[in-house]
Design a protein around this nucleic acid. Structure first.
Lengths: 344, 344
DNA sequence: TTGTATGCGTTATCAT
DNA sequence: ATGATAACGCATACAA
């Protein structure tokens, strides 16, 4: 392994000079600096991140905190997609990405302790139980954090625009002529609360009635639960003309149930999903859905987190909202004149 | 931050003694060691991974090398699932997990350089182009590596049993009475080659003919390509009675095409997938598929990698094969007497 | 403009 | 059984 010391010997200068030259300090002669850099390159020098971190107390390493539940976390395309985008952006800015969790080895560590132990400069938090005391501890600590789809006081959050997108969707359905709209929603989280409130509010605005039987709780990423809810909806004396699902994947459960009833989508009943995962694009008919901009979500999370790290003095925590787009598939029947999603 | 020095002062012993006590060295008096440990705990001491790594040249950090392509990599449930299991196992043994990639910051680094820079003790490699010179460089280096589903000479590999599982599947189809079996397979990789060879060989053993028109190349995780291939198969003068797909997700494309032809699964045509992702469980009819044991794949990869790291002298690289199981759904019609997958 | 000295927190060697 | 000391590779305050 070639170190700064090796280079200094080879160049006949001190280690300090090499260090400065390599880091572009202005107080080194241009020729010497250039020479040192060329020798470093020739010798295949690589900085040692560990030594540098020990000295500077900056690891250039970001933590990611995702749940490791089998049903969710990484295996959910929404999150793996956000993570991927976060990773790409972080790396392009010179930061590595390390997973954070409890239970490292025989030590029982909290998330915060794990971060300290690993010297993470900052952490992005998503898809966890935000009420977990260990999560709260981490967010309340001196370590910069960015949360996705959840707001903590005086902390940066990247949010999908859950209120506006549901409003947009309901308006679209309204324009398509739907007045009996059912909503199968996910388990009770702040995201669900926002979506649900937006649903009720928009319906009220438009004069659409939302009878209790049309609003059913199911779970995210759980086709079985959504299937059951769908069955109940289809058994109603007055069926809805359109069903909104918690997410695209859950819709699969509804799809099965609708087919079992011998109904056709969208001729007999309309459906819409949420997330806009790859699956929604390949189903036939193509699923009308609200596409989350996971690319931007992850990228912004990395950007803001790094901003907080490199400019701790001037950084101001903020809530950043990323728009969600209505993707018009072919699962919503136009009960009246023709309308296009482009109008919204 | 509480350091060893702090503890040493508080206990009235030297830093060396504290270090030894904390690491369970035998040459420290039992009472003193116990006392030191209790004080450390009370003071909330956490080892500093960075300092330790600098001194010991062991980071307790593993690299993972996945492609960052949008279509594959993390967003593919197969890999995210393997990764998750790898992560859980690694963490339980005290290792953290960090992503490896090229292009960290303004430095143009190879994978190998990135690993050195970050001081990774070992790397798991999956879902990449194994012919990439940068991958070869890494695998040829002194850094312990484990590859998934690809073998490099004298290196550890964790393999899904692609040959045996296809054999098992074809036998199952045969027992169900199928003689006209089509295979839509993925792009040309060593995995595909194994599966294809096993398909041909097993068919030959059983006296099943495999006309060229029944074997079509498509792509993994690409419903559109599999849809097109399906269309061609359905247009054949003599249709296959069963179609094997590259993977469960690609089957969606076939599903659409079959439906468009007004055919019913499995009454008019039988289908099988590969991977056994969550999607295959929730489709109706439930998809008959070959379930990859991603849990074991990831766990074994972590186990072996750590073994190679902690016992470099005695460790012998090995190829480990993880069985794949036939999961009997309801997409294969029994053309003759009743047969169960349990018989296989 | 360049070099010297020091220390980040830890572990390992060797002496006591 | 315990301690003094050095060293891992790097960055930086300060001296020259």
């Amino acid at each position: 392994m070639v170190t700064i010391k090796d280079i200094s010997k080879r160049c006949g200068v001190s280690a300090a000079t090499v260090s400065k030259a390599l880091n572009g300090y202005p107080d080194i002669g241009e020729e010497t600096a250039e020479y040192i850099r060329s020798v470093a390159k020739e010798m295949g020098y690589l900085p040692n991140a560990t030594a540098r971190a020990l000295k500077t107390n900056r690891s250039n390493n970001l933590g990611v905190l995702f749940v490791d539940q089998t049903h969710c976390g990484l295996t959910h395309e929404y999150f793996s997609s956000v993570l991927n985008s976060f990773k790409v952006e972080a790396e392009s800015r010179g930061f590595d990405v390390t997973f954070i969790s409890k239970n490292i080895g025989r030590f029982e560590m909290s998330y915060y302790e794990h971060c300290k132990y690993r010297n993470c400069d900052g952490v992005v938090i998503a898809s966890v139980n935000f009420k977990d005391p260990d999560v709260v501890e981490l967010v309340s600590s001196e370590i910069p954090t960015v949360t996705i789809d959840h707001v903590f006081d005086n902390r940066t959050a990247i949010l999908s625009d859950n209120i506006e997108c549901i409003r947009q969707l309901v308006h679209y359905l309204y324009e398509c002529g739907h007045r009996r709209i059912a909503y199968i929603h996910g388990e009770d989280t702040s995201v669900t609360q926002k979506r649900l409130a937006s649903f009720h509010r928009t319906c009220a605005e438009l004069g659409i009635e939302t009878p209790d039987e049309y609003v059913k709780q199911a779970f995210y990423h759980d086709p079985k639960a959504s299937g059951l809810a769908t069955r109940e909806l289809l058994s109603l004396p007055v069926r809805p003309t359109c069903i909104m699902y918690p997410d695209d994947f859950s819709f699969i459960g509804g799809m099965n149930e609708i087919e079992r009833h011998g109904l056709e989508i969208p001729d007999d009943i309309s459906v819409v999903g949420h997330d806009g995962i790859y699956l929604s694009e390949v189903l036939r008919p193509r699923l009308t859905t609200l596409k989350q901009d996971t690319e931007t979500l992850g990228k912004k999370a990395a950007e803001k987190l790094i901003e907080a790290i490199v400019s701790p003095k001037t950084y101001i925590p903020q809530q950043l909202t990323v728009p969600t787009y209505l993707v018009e598939g072919r699962t919503v029947k136009k009960l009246n004149a023709s309308v296009s999603a482009a109008d919204f």
